[in-house]
Design a protein around this nucleic acid. Structure first.
Length: 509
RNA sequence: GGGGCUGUAGCUCAGUGGUUAGAGCAGGGGACUCAUAAUCCCUCGGUCGUGGGUUCGAUCCCCACCGGCCCUACCA
């Protein structure tokens, strides 16, 4: 049996969950759902990143302990994912004991292997940010955030010998060209490595809210180095060798383009240093951008609306969970930047969901009701829709395999379009009840059954509802991908119509 | 400053060194009336960012420029 281990980044608790987080998480969820449907043993991990200075500061400012603070804020991410029907297998919090255990063992192994040394970090430090900046990041010597002069500070830290991995990383990318996709993103990572790697400071002395360095009790690991290790914590590194062997290194990290550096340079190097294989695959997606000021009039507040101001739960409340999932999956290919807009959601909703899919379900149910006694007739083995279905199934499977949910859905909607056209061509509503009507509607029902299976990863609730209306038994989520082959619709089951699945949104609202 | 990406129809995007550059949406016309005024068919629409170069021939390769974006060492 094939295995599929997929991760999202762990989100920093100080952020509110926003559409960007949702984009990544929904895509990971849909990919995981497809692999489960295909019968792969699947493990989908997401979680929250809860250490670091910013968290400690925010907690202090609010008069609570950092733990209380992170309890409260990580719960917001869980609530957002529950709302979006995200079926993760594990939710990791970096403040959990299991994580400290793995971080200490993993970084301990790197230390034992001689890739960590004590050095002093000298840099330009902004007292207000409590953070270091490079000279280039400063504006004429001043902190870009506070505008105050940065001062030169020196701190004794532990360093990771990243510079030792330049050649090894290049060699590895040469041997594993698909380790980072799409190609343009891999080129970016490789170009960065070619430009030369500096050792990096991986611990902090001035901070206590973090994972303690096992060989130096005065320091904690810097938040990024602890964060990346979460992918190993969840699969038992240092605690469960069998589980680790099951899932590593055949992992798929889904990340945004701004953290390529960490996932495609540091992370593989850290794995090499610890003596394990680097992650097999990192897939990099682009950003959702809010183009123009289109949103500002409908979103509360003045001025330009930032993507990070848009709460996923306000979108699902307005448009429904599955439509939001569909929009995120369908509108922007995983790898390029996309435009996010309410107009875009409404357009997808009305065109693809209400007019095409929802209306197809409604008209088929009505005609089966009026011309077939509300009971399913048999489909034909030589139906033209059989060819269309096979094409959609093949294309969708390849697309999901290739981290291209938008293409899988596009293929599915071609089948929906073909089914609508097929009905139009035969006009069964004009015919007298009989074998001819039965054949046409049997074909339409069978196409609809396959369509329902095809939308399972993207729209779990909608798939359940259509399945139920079609009179099919069991949970559609328990039906495997092999059932997408033509001819599986049972004869003689009752088809019911029901309310419109996606009532149109009027354009003036 | 350095590195990377991007600019194709009103909008969102595909695409290939070679006959008339594609899709969806939007626009226009027609058909139909089973269906959520949905659907189906036809159609309008692009000097493929600008200027050079390579080539028998470039939207596609090379160079420069212009515009947009990302990274430059803790933002999906």
């Amino acid at each position: 049996m094939a295995r599929f281990y997929i991760t999202t980044p762990i989100y920093y608790v100080n952020d509110a969950p926003h559409v960007g987080h949702a984009y990544c998480t929904v895509n990971a969820d849909a990919l995981a759902r497809w692999h489960r449907q295909r019968g792969d043993e699947t493990y989908f991990l997401t979680g929250t990143d809860e250490h670091g200075q910013k968290v400690a500061d925010a907690a202090a400012a609010n008069g609570v302990s950092p733990q209380e603070w992170t309890d409260r804020y990580s719960a917001r991410f869980r609530a957002a994912w529950d709302d979006l029907d995200i079926a993760y297998d594990d939710y990791i919090r970096t403040t959990e004991d299991r994580h400290a255990t793995t971080v200490q063992k993993f970084l301990g192994a790197i230390y034992d292997n001689g890739y960590i040394y004590k050095g002093s970090y000298r840099g330009l430090y902004c007292v207000s940010c409590e953070d270091y900046y490079t000279a280039e990041a400063l504006h004429e010597g001043n902190c870009p955030v506070h505008g105050r002069p940065a001062v030169e500070m020196e701190e004794e830290n532990w360093f990771f010998r990243l510079s030792a991995f330049e050649d090894k990383l290049l060699e590895w990318y040469g041997a594993h060209p698909q380790a980072t996709t799409p190609d343009t993103k891999r080129n970016e990572a490789v170009a960065f490595i070619r430009g030369g790697l500096r050792d990096i400071s991986i611990t902090r002395r001035s901070l206590t809210w973090g994972v303690r360095v096992p060989w130096d009790s005065d320091q904690v690991f810097y938040v990024w180095y602890d964060a990346l290790v979460n992918y190993l914590t969840a699969i038992g590194y240092g605690t469960d060798d069998a589980k680790l062997a099951t899932w590593w290194p055949s992992v798929h990290h889904l990340i945004g383009k701004e953290i390529i550096r960490f996932h495609c340079v540091w992370w593989p190097a850290m794995c090499m240093a610890a003596g394990i294989e680097p992650p097999q695959h990192v897939h990099v997606h682009g950003w959702l951008l809010v183009g123009g000021q289109k949103l500002s009039k409908t979103m509360a507040g003045e001025g330009a609306v930032r993507l990070t101001d848009i709460a996923p739960q306000s979108l699902t409340a307005e448009y429904g969970v599955d439509p939001v999932r569909y929009y995120l999956l369908r509108d922007t290919p995983l790898g390029t930047d996309g435009d996010f807009s309410l107009e875009g959601i409404i357009s997808r909703y009305n065109t693809d969901l209400a007019n095409n899919l929802g209306n197809l379900v409604a008209r088929v149910a009505t005609v089966v009701g009026s011309k077939c006694g509300g009971v399913s007739p048999a489909s034909r083995d030589d139906s033209p829709l059989r060819i269309e279905s096979a094409a959609a199934v093949t294309t969708a499977a390849a697309a999901w395999e290739d981290f291209a949910p938008h293409a899988a859905l596009e293929a599915t909607w071609r089948l929906i379009g073909a089914t609508n056209a097929y009905l139009e061509q035969h006009a069964p509503w004009k015919m007298e009840p009989g074998p001819e009507v039965a054949a046409v509607m049997g074909d339409a029902l069978e196409a609809l059954r396959i369509i329902t299976l095809l939308i399972v990863p993207a729209m779990p609730s909608t798939a359940r509802e259509i399945w139920r209306r079609l009179g099919l038994t069991g949970d559609v989520h328990d039906v495997g991908w092999e059932a997408t082959s033509w001819g599986g619709f049972p004869v003689g089951v009752s088809v019911t119509k029901g309310e419109p699945l996606f009532p149109r949104i009027s354009s003036d609202s």
